[in-house]
Design a protein around this nucleic acid. Sequence first.
DNA 1: CCAGTCATGTTTATGGCGTACACCTGGTGT
DNA 2: ACACCAGGTGTACGCCATAAACATGACTGG
Lengths: 294, 294
Amino acid sequence: MARGKAEDPDHAVELLWREGGEKPRQGLSLDRIVRAGVELADAEGLGGLSMRKVAERLGFTTMSLYRHVPGRDQLIDLMCDEVAGETASAGPVVREEGDWRVRLEACAREGWELRRGHPWLAEVRGGRHVPGPRTVARYEQMLSAVAGTGLPPAEVIAVVGLVGRFVDSEALLLVESAEAERRSGVSHEEWWGGRDTLFERLYAYPTITRLWEEGGFDRPEDTFEFGLARLLDGIELLIQKRYESSDETGLCVVCGTPVERPASGRPREYCSASCRQRAYRRRRTGRDGQSREK
Amino acid sequence: MARGKAEDPDHAVELLWREGGEKPRQGLSLDRIVRAGVELADAEGLGGLSMRKVAERLGFTTMSLYRHVPGRDQLIDLMCDEVAGETASAGPVVREEGDWRVRLEACAREGWELRRGHPWLAEVRGGRHVPGPRTVARYEQMLSAVAGTGLPPAEVIAVVGLVGRFVDSEALLLVESAEAERRSGVSHEEWWGGRDTLFERLYAYPTITRLWEEGGFDRPEDTFEFGLARLLDGIELLIQKRYESSDETGLCVVCGTPVERPASGRPREYCSASCRQRAYRRRRTGRDGQSREK
DNA sequence: CCAGTCATGTTTATGGCGTACACCTGGTGT
DNA sequence: ACACCAGGTGTACGCCATAAACATGACTGG
C-alpha cells in the first residue's frame, strides 16, 4: 500500500490544500520551489521545466527537491494552483453581478488572461490532475454563473467544460506558435511565407485557393474573440430552448431566475424590466460590440 | 543555407507530397517506417513513439531510420498524413450533398472517428506542421462546406479552425484518460472515486456540492455531441445574422446559395421549397435528433 | 577490370531527462 | 550517550533524440 509518496495522490492533495502556516525557513521550501518552477516555465515553457534547472536556479542539487515535492508532475500541479490565485475570482466568494452570459464570458476572459501571463498553463496535459483550492474556486465561479440558468446539472457541467476547453485550446495555439519562434528564431509569418514549395501544391484545391486570393488568410479573425462569441451564442440558444419547453414555471431568458407564468395571456419572457432592456440592447448592438477593438 | 535535411522544411514537403512511384524494396523504406510508426503510436500513444522502438519493430538499428526520415517530428507529420487518408473525404473530390451544416457536421464526425482509431492524432502538438495532401484534402472539404454560406473569407477560415480545434480538444480529453488508465491500470472512475481526501474539501463550495448531489457528475453529457451541437448553433446564428444584414442579394438560410430579392414584397428566405421544408423540419425536431442514440 | 561514387545500414558518443538509492550531517528528544 | 530523523548530496540507471564517423555493397564511367 504505502509505496512511497511519489505514487500517492492523497499526499499530493495534502500539499495542494496545505495551510499557509509554514515557518519561513532559510533553506529550501515547497513555496520557493513552486515559485522557481513558475518563473522557469514562464521563461522557457513547460518543456524547459526540468528538475535540474529548478534546483540550479535555487542553488541546490537536483535531488534536494525531492525532499519537498514528490516529483515533476506534482510540482506542475502545485504551480498551476499557485498561478490560479492571481486574478480576482480566486477566492471562495462568488461574484454575482450580471446575467449568466456576462459572468461566464468574464470567467473565460480571466482564464485567457491567465494563460497570456503563463502560457505553459495551456501546455499542462494529462488527466488525473488533482486540483488545488484556487483552481477549484475558479471552477466554482464558472459553474455558479451557469447554474442560475435552470439548465439541468449535467448540462451546466458540460457548458463549463466546453468553455474551459475552448480557452485552453486557443491558448495552446498561441503557445505553440510562440515556442516555435523562440526555438527557431524565425517568426510565424516568416516561416510560413517561405513555404513556397507547399503553396504550389495547394493550387490544386479550389476553395483554399479562392479564400487565399480573397485575402482570408492575410487578415484572419481573432480566433479567441470569434470562437467565444459563437460558443456563447450556441449556449444561449440552448438556454432559450430549455426555457420555451418548460411550461409551468419559466426562467428569465436573460438572467435565468424563475419567473411565474401569469394566469392568462402570454407568458412573460423576462423577470424584470432591466432584463428586458438588456436583451433589447443586446439584439441591437449585435452583441459583439465589445469584442472588436481596432 | 543547406544545413542538413533535419532542419529543412522543404525536404519535409517533398516527403509528404511524394509520388507513390517507389520501387518496392526489401530493406527499409519510408512507407514501412511510417506504417510501423502508426502501429506503435496506436498501441502506445505518441509518448510511446520513440525512434528506438520503431527501429526495433522493423528489425533495424535506431540510426538506420535517419537514412529515410529526417527526424522524429517529420515522422509524425508523415504518420498524420498517412492516417488522414483513411476516410472517404480524403480524395481531391469534394462531396457536395446537404447544406453547410450537414456537411460541416459530417467533417467534424469524420475527424472524431479518425481520432478514435488513432488517438495519438490529438496528441500531436506544435505549430509549423507541414500538411500532406490528405490532410489538405480534409481541410479543403471543411472549407468548401462553409464557403457556400456567403460568410466573408476570414470568417469561413475561423469557423473551420474553431470546429477543428474543438474536435481535437475533445479527443485529447479521451486520450489522456485512456493513457492514464493504461499506465496505472486503474480506471478513470476508480481513481477519482478514491480521492475522498479531495472531495471532503469540496464541500466548502456550494455550487459544486449542489450539482454533485443532484447527480450532475454521475450522469455526464456526451461532451462531444453536446459541444458540437452548441458550436454549430452558434455558427448558424452568425450566418443568419450576416444574411439579414445583407440587403441587396440574400443567401438561402439553409444552403447558403444566393437568392435574388423580388422587386416588391418580403425578401425570400429560402432558395427552394426543399430548403424551406428542411428548415421547417429542423425547427420541429429540435435539430439534434440524430445525435442522441440511446 | 578497376576506381570512384552513392545508397544504405551500423557503431559510437554526446547531452538531456526523471528519479531510485545510499549516504552524510547536524539538530533534537530521551 | 544514544538513536533518530529531516534535509541536502552524489552516484547511477535507463530512457530519449540525434550528430558523426564508419562499413558495405551495388552501380557506373573509363
